[in-house]
């Protein structure tokens, strides 16, 4: 606590602090808050992007839900929107679960000391370092139905009788998208878990080893509870990231309805269909869905993310 004589000094420091924060806050207002507000507003208008938002009329909830001549219109009654929500939830749920399990396994392996460990650790970083568009293209080529190496190997091994349409078949294309995402983001998970593992005290493990406790039991009873906070934060980050997925799905399967996510849907309305109104309404719904999931995950995991203590 500052003494009475230091109070003016503190007041001056607070003024200086706001002056230092102002440029950053101003830029964020311009490039984040204002565009978001504009998007939400456009969702209630019949604007088209070609008209630069000028001359747009307020239409209320029509972009979300409206009835004309006994027929319902709007994003909320579009079956493809709900399919996109479902696709996104399936994608996020399955890929984050797989990444978490695989990430913990890879981290446990990398936590051991063995010759060449630094090289293995470096090689694990490779998928993370590859741009998403590039990894989508690389896998699109490997999963190519006619010339892809994946089909060639599976055929050679006799595991499949004929080539599979990895990126065209409705079910397989979702499998492919999840596969590529898991490949690309497991390193992130593994690195965060590894960082948590390396902060654990080693003497606990010595004690467990001396007592002859089975390694799996040690993992479940000791390691897992200790790395749980780091794991929760990593899962929250990855889940929010997966819910807004765009690049991977768009490059791997384009606007295919079977894998279309919420972001791909909103962009299609906005750009391909040139409908700023419904596109913005869909984009607003994306924010709401993600916020809802974030609240649910945070409540479940009781992660204290925004808490800022010096």
């Amino acid at each position: 606590m500052a003494g009475a004589g230091r109070a003016p000094l503190h007041a001056r420091r607070v003024r200086e602090a706001w002056a230092l924060i102002a440029p950053m806050a101003l830029v964020l207002l311009c490039v984040a808050a204002w565009p978001l507000g504009r998007t939400i507003w456009l969702g209630f208008t019949d604007a088209s992007l070609a008209g630069a938002g000028a001359g747009a009329d307020f239409v209320g909830w029509e972009n979300y839900y409206a009835v004309f001549g006994g027929q319902a219109f709007g994003v909320l009654v579009d079956p493809q929107w709900w399919r996109s929500v479902g696709n996104t939830l399936v994608f996020a749920g399955v890929s984050v679960s797989l990444e978490t399990v695989l990430g913990v396994m890879v981290a446990l392996v990398l936590h051991r000391r063995f010759p060449g460990r630094a090289w293995v650790r470096a090689s694990v970083l490779v998928p993370w370092a590859i741009p998403t568009v590039v990894s989508a293209k690389m896998w699109a080529w490997m999963l190519n139905d006619q010339f892809g190496v994946v089909n060639a190997v599976l055929l050679d091994l006799g595991l499949i009788a004929q080539p599979l349409a990895w990126t065209a078949d409705p079910v397989l294309s979702m499998v492919s998208v999840i596969l590529v995402d898991v490949w690309k983001t497991t390193p992130f998970m593994a690195l965060l878990v590894l960082a948590a593992l390396e902060m654990l005290p080693r003497d606990i493990y010595e004690a467990a080893r001396v007592d002859g406790i089975h390694p799996v039991r040690v993992f479940v009873r000791v390691t897992l509870p200790l790395i749980r906070p780091a794991l929760v934060v990593a899962v929250v980050f990855r889940t929010l990231d997966a819910l807004r997925v765009f690049d991977l799905v768009y490059v791997l399967t384009a606007n295919s309805p079977a894998t279309m996510t919420m972001s791909v849907y909103a962009r299609r309305e906005l750009i391909d269909f040139q409908s700023a109104g419904t596109g913005s309404a869909a984009a607003t719904l994306v924010v709401l869905v993600i916020a809802l999931v974030a609240v649910m995950v945070l409540t479940a995991g009781r992660a204290r993310m925004a808490e800022a203590r010096p």
Partner: peptide
């Protein structure tokens, strides 16, 4: 301060598509 940091962090969780039309007009 905590609120400001929380707000900044929440911006990094924004889906890009949410600002797409607003950013386009900007």
């Amino acid at each position: 301060r905590g609120l400001l940091l929380g707000t900044v962090l929440s911006v990094s969780m924004f889906p890009q598509v949410a600002v797409l039309s607003g950013m386009f007009l900007l």
